[in-house]
Protein backbone atom coordinates (compact mmCIF):
# COMPACT_ATOMS: atom_id res chain seq x y z
CA UNK A 1 0.00 0.00 0.00
CA UNK A 2 3.08 2.17 0.19
CA UNK A 3 2.99 2.96 -3.53
CA UNK A 4 -0.17 5.03 -3.09
CA UNK A 5 0.72 8.50 -1.78
CA UNK A 6 -2.72 9.13 -0.27
CA UNK A 7 -2.73 6.09 2.02
CA UNK A 8 0.94 6.56 2.87
CA UNK A 9 0.67 10.22 3.88
CA UNK A 10 -2.59 9.83 5.79
CA UNK A 11 -1.19 6.84 7.68
CA UNK A 12 1.90 8.88 8.55
CA UNK A 13 -0.28 11.69 9.89
CA UNK A 14 -2.59 9.37 11.81
CA UNK A 15 -0.16 6.97 13.50
CA UNK A 16 1.24 9.42 16.13
CA UNK A 17 -2.27 10.70 16.87
CA UNK A 18 -3.58 7.16 17.43
CA UNK A 19 -0.71 6.37 19.78
CA UNK A 20 -1.35 9.56 21.76
CA UNK A 21 -5.06 8.76 21.94
CA UNK A 22 -4.15 5.32 23.31
CA UNK A 23 -2.04 6.88 26.06
CA UNK A 24 -4.84 9.37 26.81
CA UNK A 25 -7.29 6.49 27.28
CA UNK A 26 -4.65 4.72 29.39
CA UNK A 27 -4.17 7.53 31.89
CA UNK A 28 -7.76 8.78 32.07
CA UNK A 29 -9.24 5.39 32.92
CA UNK A 30 -10.75 6.66 36.16
CA UNK A 31 -12.45 9.72 34.59
CA UNK A 32 -14.14 8.32 31.50
CA UNK A 33 -14.60 5.12 29.57
CA UNK A 34 -11.35 3.30 29.03
CA UNK A 35 -8.50 1.86 30.99
CA UNK A 36 -5.60 -0.47 30.46
CA UNK A 37 -7.20 -3.06 28.21
CA UNK A 38 -8.70 -0.62 25.70
CA UNK A 39 -5.56 1.51 25.66
CA UNK A 40 -3.41 -1.52 24.90
CA UNK A 41 -5.62 -2.50 21.99
CA UNK A 42 -5.61 1.05 20.54
CA UNK A 43 -1.83 1.26 20.83
CA UNK A 44 -1.53 -2.09 19.07
CA UNK A 45 -3.90 -0.78 16.37
CA UNK A 46 -1.41 2.00 15.59
CA UNK A 47 1.36 -0.57 15.15
CA UNK A 48 -0.94 -2.75 13.03
CA UNK A 49 -1.67 0.24 10.76
CA UNK A 50 2.07 0.80 10.46
CA UNK A 51 2.62 -2.86 9.55
CA UNK A 52 -0.25 -2.96 7.05
CA UNK A 53 0.79 0.19 5.20
CA UNK A 54 4.58 0.01 5.35
CA UNK A 55 5.06 -3.75 5.43
CA UNK A 56 5.52 -6.31 8.18
CA UNK A 57 9.26 -6.39 7.66
CA UNK A 58 9.67 -2.72 8.53
CA UNK A 59 7.23 -2.98 11.42
CA UNK A 60 9.35 -5.76 12.90
CA UNK A 61 12.42 -3.53 12.66
CA UNK A 62 10.64 -0.67 14.41
CA UNK A 63 9.09 -2.92 17.07
CA UNK A 64 11.17 -6.08 17.34
CA UNK A 65 9.80 -9.26 18.88
CA UNK A 66 11.92 -8.80 22.00
CA UNK A 67 9.98 -5.60 22.78
CA UNK A 68 6.85 -7.74 22.94
CA UNK A 69 8.48 -10.20 25.32
CA UNK A 70 9.78 -7.35 27.45
CA UNK A 71 6.39 -5.61 27.41
CA UNK A 72 4.46 -8.73 28.40
CA UNK A 73 6.72 -9.52 31.33
CA UNK A 74 7.16 -5.91 32.46
CA UNK A 75 3.38 -5.48 32.55
CA UNK A 76 2.88 -8.57 34.69
CA UNK A 77 5.76 -7.54 36.97
CA UNK A 78 4.27 -4.06 37.36
CA UNK A 79 0.85 -5.50 38.24
CA UNK A 80 2.21 -8.05 40.66
CA UNK A 81 4.80 -5.64 42.04
CA UNK A 82 2.10 -3.14 43.00
CA UNK A 83 0.30 -5.91 44.84
CA UNK A 84 3.43 -7.05 46.63
CA UNK A 85 4.28 -3.43 47.49
CA UNK A 86 0.95 -3.06 49.27
CA UNK A 87 1.60 -6.34 51.10
CA UNK A 88 5.03 -5.03 52.18
CA UNK A 89 3.30 -1.88 53.41
CA UNK A 90 1.25 -4.08 55.71
CA UNK A 91 -2.06 -4.48 53.87
CA UNK A 92 -3.67 -7.14 51.68
CA UNK A 93 -2.51 -7.92 48.13
CA UNK A 94 -3.44 -5.00 45.81
CA UNK A 95 -4.87 -3.04 48.75
CA UNK A 96 -3.93 0.40 47.43
CA UNK A 97 -4.74 2.34 50.63
CA UNK A 98 -1.46 1.28 52.18
CA UNK A 99 0.71 2.73 49.37
CA UNK A 100 0.63 6.32 50.64
CA UNK A 101 -0.42 8.26 53.72
CA UNK A 102 -3.29 9.99 51.92
CA UNK A 103 -5.80 7.24 51.02
CA UNK A 104 -7.20 9.09 47.99
CA UNK A 105 -3.79 9.72 46.42
CA UNK A 106 -2.79 6.13 47.27
CA UNK A 107 -5.86 4.78 45.48
CA UNK A 108 -5.08 6.92 42.44
CA UNK A 109 -1.43 5.82 42.30
CA UNK A 110 -2.32 2.14 42.72
CA UNK A 111 -4.93 2.17 39.94
CA UNK A 112 -2.55 4.07 37.64
CA UNK A 113 0.27 1.53 38.13
CA UNK A 114 -1.94 -1.55 37.79
CA UNK A 115 -3.70 -0.19 34.70
CA UNK A 116 -0.36 0.68 33.12
CA UNK A 117 0.77 -2.91 33.68
CA UNK A 118 -2.42 -4.21 32.05
CA UNK A 119 -2.01 -1.83 29.10
CA UNK A 120 1.62 -2.83 28.54
CA UNK A 121 0.81 -6.54 28.55
CA UNK A 122 -2.26 -6.21 26.32
CA UNK A 123 -0.47 -4.05 23.73
CA UNK A 124 2.48 -6.44 23.55
CA UNK A 125 0.30 -9.55 23.28
CA UNK A 126 -1.84 -7.94 20.57
CA UNK A 127 1.19 -6.94 18.50
CA UNK A 128 2.74 -10.40 18.97
CA UNK A 129 -0.51 -12.05 17.82
CA UNK A 130 -0.65 -9.84 14.75
CA UNK A 131 2.98 -10.53 13.87
CA UNK A 132 2.42 -14.26 14.27
CA UNK A 133 -0.72 -14.40 12.12
CA UNK A 134 0.33 -11.91 9.44
CA UNK A 135 3.75 -13.47 9.00
CA UNK A 136 2.28 -16.94 8.59
CA UNK A 137 1.88 -16.92 4.78
CA UNK A 138 5.37 -15.52 4.24
CA UNK A 139 6.71 -18.24 6.51
CA UNK A 140 4.81 -21.02 4.70
CA UNK A 141 5.97 -19.80 1.27
CA UNK A 142 9.57 -19.55 2.43
CA UNK A 143 9.44 -23.10 3.82
CA UNK A 144 7.90 -24.34 0.57
CA UNK A 145 10.61 -22.56 -1.43
CA UNK A 146 13.46 -24.08 0.57
CA UNK A 147 11.83 -27.50 0.26
CA UNK A 148 11.58 -27.05 -3.51
CA UNK A 149 15.23 -25.99 -3.69
CA UNK A 150 16.34 -29.00 -1.65
CA UNK A 151 14.30 -31.26 -3.91
CA UNK A 152 15.99 -29.94 -7.07
CA UNK A 153 19.43 -30.11 -5.43
CA UNK A 154 19.12 -33.79 -4.50
CA UNK A 155 18.03 -35.03 -7.92
CA UNK A 156 14.45 -36.05 -8.58
CA UNK A 157 13.34 -36.93 -5.04
CA UNK A 158 10.55 -34.86 -3.48
CA UNK A 159 10.47 -33.89 0.19
CA UNK A 160 8.92 -36.81 2.04
CA UNK A 161 10.39 -39.48 -0.24
CA UNK A 162 13.36 -39.93 2.04
CA UNK A 163 11.19 -41.25 4.88
Amino acid sequence: MQDDPVIRVVAKVLIPAIMLFALYVQFHGDYGPGGGFQAGVIFAAALVLNAVVFGLHRARQVWPMRYNLMGVSAGVVLYGGTGVWSMLAGANYLDYFALKADPKAAQHLGILLVEFGVGLTVASVMVALFFAFAGRLTHIRLVAKTAAHEATDSGTSRPGDAA
Binding site: M1, D4, V6, I7, V10, V13, L14
Partner: peptide
Protein backbone atom coordinates in the same frame (compact mmCIF):
# COMPACT_ATOMS: atom_id res chain seq x y z
CA UNK B 1 -12.78 14.55 7.04
CA UNK B 2 -9.31 12.97 6.95
CA UNK B 3 -10.15 9.26 6.95
CA UNK B 4 -13.37 8.95 4.93
CA UNK B 5 -11.99 10.35 1.64
CA UNK B 6 -8.87 8.26 2.13
CA UNK B 7 -10.90 5.09 2.63
CA UNK B 8 -13.09 5.91 -0.38
CA UNK B 9 -10.01 6.56 -2.50
CA UNK B 10 -8.45 3.30 -1.31
CA UNK B 11 -11.59 1.37 -2.30
CA UNK B 12 -11.72 3.10 -5.71
CA UNK B 13 -8.05 2.40 -6.32
Amino acid sequence: ALTSPTATHAIAR
